[in-house]
Design a protein around this nucleic acid. Structure first.
Length: 855
RNA sequence: GCGAGAGUGGCGGAACUGGCAGACGCGCUAGACUUAGGAUCUAGUGGGCAACCGUGGGGGUUCAACUCCCCCCUCUCGCACCA
């Protein structure tokens, strides 16, 4: 009697086996090619969800596949452990963030381990460990020395609920990316990283990342937002002052009829000083500045402005241009001042119409039909210049160059490049993060903490009230400190670092996670980096990936590493989604609250909603832990990989999970049933001695090797790879019925199946490998290569088409000559009938594939 | 508006450089076994009685188009008063 398939027993057994044998310990082996497989490390929220499972299972198949191919693989895991939820837990439940975080890590680690993933846990890092964040501080000091870390007073995005600063990247549709509160503005003294120094390289290197998905590169380019144009100086009438504007359309300079400046622009106060308009303008400026910036810059917002009473001079036309303060002009972009060309800019056009400002046509369309009277909106496309003096008749592109030349020659302006990217504000008014290693001394000013004093440790004893600013402000033993320079009394910086700092270099730390003398060992980094395959969610397309690229370049410029880019290949896995269920009265429902398509509470008919991203609030989540308990890790893994290719959305289906279970059970039974026959078979296979059934199965075996290997290589299309293995199983179980197949052929088929399956469903594969009498791990077996000779067939099926439509099939020997194929097709009975009485115009033969008869 | 991606059976998805559309799985139908269980096994399953018709719609290139070109529609994601 065969043993039953009981994943619950065998999975922990094999996990223990792998651990004891240290199968996944990464070693720097100079004789082997290395492979760095990395999944984005999780925030330790307490429990894993299906998104994590999908992410890690994809990574695990890749890592195991590469191991079997003989690569020296590093496959680490860790914890992005600083962050707000820990602090919120402290406020709400009175649990210390450290306790909460480390307990969550322990829980999640246990959950992750049940999946049977091939991690080298010796390299585990938690960013909240002192020996990790020490190196955040060390890197900060290096960046401070280089002028990359600096402090400035600025308006920052402020989340009133989190009571902290947010980077632009962390504001989504005007709301906090974590808590969704409306983000406001606040002027604060803040620490920044000069990521803008790297804007050009971050942008140009996107061309050198062919292993990244196009949409992620597009999002990064979009975010960096390079635009080329010119800075132009405008004299202010009756003063020695000037206003500098940035424009991408210097070709329209002759059409600039007024000036729009941001309410925050420092010149505003000077311009209106002593003028009649002063009070009125200041009232307007005050009002706009108090308006929410998000509202102010929202689409369709009414354009508003007020005349300052001052004029600038157009350097080309010498005409006076009234200077207006306008709500839509942003101080953060360009110079905070815009030369308004109403005729050729949509916003300026609307503004000019509203306030009755002059409009001047300077770009004519290629067909020459534009007149001021027939224009209902600005003409923003290219054309040729008119009303532009010596530049008339030049086309837009050339005019831009010629006018830029002219401005530079006359000293009125210069070519300029502007970026949308802003410097990265890293100060957070929070406790649970890396303390910024800076001390403020009354005598010496801003002083860095000496390297020997690192890490600046987070004090344990602080009160979490949830009110006011950072808890660190009240931690006396932390704040009060001696100045490292003069030994006088001084105060520590109480801001902590944005947690994106932690995750910007963790992939380097993994290479030498235990090194306590430096952030990483350059020799180890040299061996392992860059990451060959990075896998994670699309939600990190801009922030995390951009910051990591930035850090890599900074660390390179510090002379510590040699690479330019951290991640050679990036796979952004799709979200895990599920159907939603909704009762008209009781809202979202769990599947178990539905009986016969009706709400279990009120009996109303349930609406089957859209398939949406799994979320607790919509009650369409599935718990990985329960699934593993029911089906085992291998079934969960297999379904996650089979339901969709990794980059696409995965729609969760409970029946689909059953299907995965059924497949594994069939494999189990198949091997058990045949184990006695093939266990001790040692013979070699001679293709020429096989009968047709054996030949067929042997061929299918090798076709499966080919297909599975190619599907993995072709962007990790695991779904089709699994389909191929299912075909092989169908062939073995169906094909062998009634026909006795030589034991050697059957053995080759089953062993190949187990080896190919092992990266996908490793536990059952190990178990079955041993059932067949093999010693050791199936992971030690080299990934099989297919045999060209086994795949070749003597006979091929040739498709016969008439006028491109399928009309018949014939079997011929492979490699048949064109004439032979033609003859065979034309002699086919059905074909004869169909072409009877018609003239054959042409016959096309594709070797070993098809014949197309054109009549 | 700009950028990226997608649209194929009842469903998830296959079809790699143009060459048998619908692999594989789910679901469904019929049957078998059974201590009548949401288990397992076998067969069938795009539409149409049929000739034939079928990959969002319309044109084109080609002996041949899901695949290449042009136009349009729909959906998803990202960005958006960026000068």
């Amino acid at each position: 009697m065969e043993k039953k398939y009981t994943p619950k027993e065998m999975e922990p057994k094999w996990q223990g086996y792998w651990e004891n044998k240290k199968l996944f310990t990464a070693k720097e082996d100079p004789k082997k090619r290395k492979y760095y497989c990395l999944e984005m490390f999780p925030y330790p929220s307490g429990r894993i969800h299906m998104g994590h499972v999908r992410n890690y299972v994809i990574g695990d198949v890749i890592a195991r596949y590469k191991m079997m191919q003989g690569f020296s693989v590093i496959h680490p895991m860790g914890w992005d452990a600083f962050g707000m939820p820990a602090e919120n837990a402290a406020i709400e439940k009175g649990i210390h963030p450290a306790k909460w975080t480390y307990e969550n890590i322990a829980n999640m680690k246990a959950q992750i381990k049940k999946l049977g993933l091939s991690y080298d846990w010796n390299r585990e890092v938690a960013t909240c460990d002192e020996d990790y964040y020490k190196w955040n501080q060390w890197l900060f000091l290096k960046m401070y020395e280089k002028g990359i870390a600096y402090k400035k007073r600025s308006f920052v995005n402020w989340c009133p609920s989190c009571e902290t600063v947010l980077a632009n990247e962390q504001v989504e549709d005007g709301s906090c990316w974590r808590c969704s509160s409306i983000v406001g503005q606040k002027e604060l003294e803040q620490w920044f990283f000069k990521i803008t120094d790297y804007a050009e390289e971050l942008l140009s290197c996107t061309e050198k990342l062919p292993g990244w998905p196009e949409n992620v590169l597009a999002m990064q380019r979009n975010w960096i937002g390079r635009s080329t144009g010119a800075e132009i100086d405008f004299k202010i009438a009756g003063t020695n002052e000037k206003i500098t504007v940035f424009t991408t359309r210097q070709d329209t300079l002759f059409g600039a009829t007024f000036m729009s400046i941001a309410p925050e622009h420092p010149l505003v106060k000077k311009l209106i000083k002593g003028k009649k308009t002063e009070k009125e303008v200041m009232a307007f400026v005050e009002r706009i500045m108090h308006e929410d910036k998000i509202m102010r810059t929202a689409e369709g917002m009414e354009k508003e402005g007020i005349f300052t009473g001052a004029y600038a001079i157009n350097p080309m036309t010498k005409k006076e241009m009234p200077i207006w303060v306008a709500n839509f002009v942003l101080m953060e972009y360009g110079t905070g001042a815009v030369m308004a060309v109403p005729c050729h800019d949509t916003r300026d056009f609307a503004f000019a119409k509203k306030y009755n400002l002059p409009i001047q046509l300077v770009i004519q369309n290629p067909v020459g039909t534009l007149t001021l009277d027939n224009m209902k909106d600005a003409y923003v496309d290219e054309g040729y210049l008119i009303n532009s003096g010596e530049f008339n008749n030049l086309k837009t592109a050339e005019a831009k160059e010629r006018i830029a030349d002219y401005l530079e020659k006359e000293g009125m302006g210069k070519r300029s490049i502007n970026y949308r990217l802003r410097d990265w504000g890293i100060s957070r008014q929070r406790y649970w993060g890396t303390p910024i290693p800076i001390i403020y001394c009354d005598k010496c000013g801003t002083v860095t903490v000496p390297e020997k004093d690192l890490p600046v440790k987070l004090p344990k004893d602080v009160a979490f009230t949830g009110k006011g600013a950072s808890p660190l402000l009240d931690a006396k033993g932390f704040v009060d400190v001696k100045c490292p320079k003069c030994n006088g009394s001084a105060k520590r910086e109480t801001d902590t670092m944005d947690t994106f700092v932690d995750s910007s270099w963790y992939f380097l730390r993994y290479t030498s996670a235990k090194d306590d003398t430096r952030p990483f060992d350059p020799e180890k980094v040299k061996y392992w980096m860059p990451v060959d395959q990075y896998i994670g969610g699309i939600e990190h397309a801009v922030m995390h990936l951009l910051y990591s690229r930035f850090f890599t370049k900074v660390i390179r410029d510090l002379g510590l590493i040699k690479i330019d880019e951290p991640f050679t290949n990036l796979l952004t896995q799709g979200m895990v989604c599920k159907e939603t269920l909704r009762c008209p009265e009781h809202g979202w429902l769990f599947p178990e609250d539905v009986k016969d398509n009706r709400c279990a509470t009120c009996g109303k008919e349930v609406e089957r909603g859209r398939v949406e991203k799994m979320s607790k609030s919509k009650k369409n989540v599935v718990d990985p832990d329960k699934l593993i308990d029911n089906y085992g890790a291998d079934t969960v893994r297999l379904f996650s990989l089979f339901a969709a290719p990794p980059e696409k959305y995965l729609e969760w289906s409970d029946q689909g999970v059953d299907g995965a279970w059924r497949f594994l059970s069939r494999v189990w039974v198949l091997v058990q049933k045949n184990s006695d026959i093939i266990k001790d078979v040692k013979g070699k296979i001679e293709i020429s001695e096989l009968d047709s059934a054996e030949r067929g199965l042997y061929r299918k075996t090798h076709l499966t090797i080919k297909k599975v290997t190619e599907d993995i290589e072709r962007d990790f299309h695991f779904n089709t790879a699994i389909a191929a293995m299912m075909e092989l199983v169908n062939e073995i179980s169906g094909g062998s019925e009634g026909k006795v197949v030589q034991a050697e052929v059957l053995k080759a088929a089953l062993e190949t199946l187990i080896i190919l399956l092992s990266p996908f469903a490793p536990h059952i594969s190990e178990e079955l490998w041993s059932v067949l009498g093999n010693k050791g791990s199936v992971m030690d077996i080299p990934w099989p290569k297919y045999n060209e000779g086994a795949i070749k067939t003597e006979d091929v099926l040739i498709v016969i088409q008439i006028n491109g439509k399928l009309r018949g099939k014939i079997t011929l020997s492979a490699g048949a000559a064109e004439d032979e194929v033609k003859k065979g097709a034309l002699e086919d009975e059905r074909i004869k009938e169909l072409i009877a009485g018609k003239a054959i115009r042409k016959v096309i033969v594709v070797k070993d594939k098809l014949v197309n008869i054109v009549v």
